[in-house]
Amino acid sequence: MSDVLLKVSGVSVSIPTGQGNVHAVDDAAFSINKHEVFSLIGESGSGKSILGQAIMRLLPPNAVFSGKVELDGTEISALSEKEMQKIRGKTVASIAQNPYLAMNPGIRVGTQVAEPMRAHLGLSKEDAKARTRRALKYFDILPPEVREREYPFQYSGGMLQRAMVAMGTAADPELIIADEPTKGVDVLKRRNIAAIFQKVASEGCAFLLITHDVGFARAMSDRIAVNYCGQIIEIAGKDAFFKEPLHPYSKALLDAVPERGMHPIPGSSPSMIEVPEGCRFHPRCPHKTERCLADPPVVEMARRCVRCWLYA
């Protein structure tokens, strides 16, 4: 058995809209190893959420998908919807952004946390209950006997966030996909989400974090992929990436974070409908040359790769 848990190869997604086709994902390829925290960072609107939805097979019905997604050696992109349902929540779980929307307000929290266990692990009511209590206790929702009988509105925001993670991890998934877990929350909550995720990751669960928050990705991940305008332009180990980003966009992105002085990236994000020819970053790139008008190659290096002519 290999160490690769999720392998995404040649995935493209386009979504027809009134204005034209949105090329949300173009030729995405990466793999996530077991027990690895992998972050996909990029600006909002760069198609990174669509990639997450494509992996979970939860794309909008009119989206056009091509490519291959393998999970643990099974090609999940070829599975039927019914087979896929067995995988969602069991092997791959997703954690929603807003706990107030993700939890059903009319059902006791304990029941909601127990649901994936009963559905996917086939546990009896008693076993599921015992396990739910353990899970709640693990996430400091105390005392679990009382809290499991409460409804979401009786929880504080932070506690509900933890309950949601408890629900996501209830069936012992091997991979958790979290889409923008830190969007619109303040630093303290952000740090707390990081702490909860860290706790889950320490148990050996792999993560795919889809985020625009560079600081969060830096704190959490083992490896980082940078998404720009529908393409993954760089994949590297965290330390290597933050020490020396290769792609000009990665460099610009890191210079824009407050810790490094908030230097803005010149120009504006391109439209996802009429994408720039060749390298998609070339209109804003300080190193652009003639060859950038042709599609840049994905340059493989030791433990990292970058989609740029500079390294070809």
Partner: peptide, 9 residues
């Protein structure tokens, strides 16, 4: 709805 949908890109 379309406006919301477009807002995602």
């Amino acid at each position: 709805k379309n406006l919301e949908l477009e807002g995602r890109f």
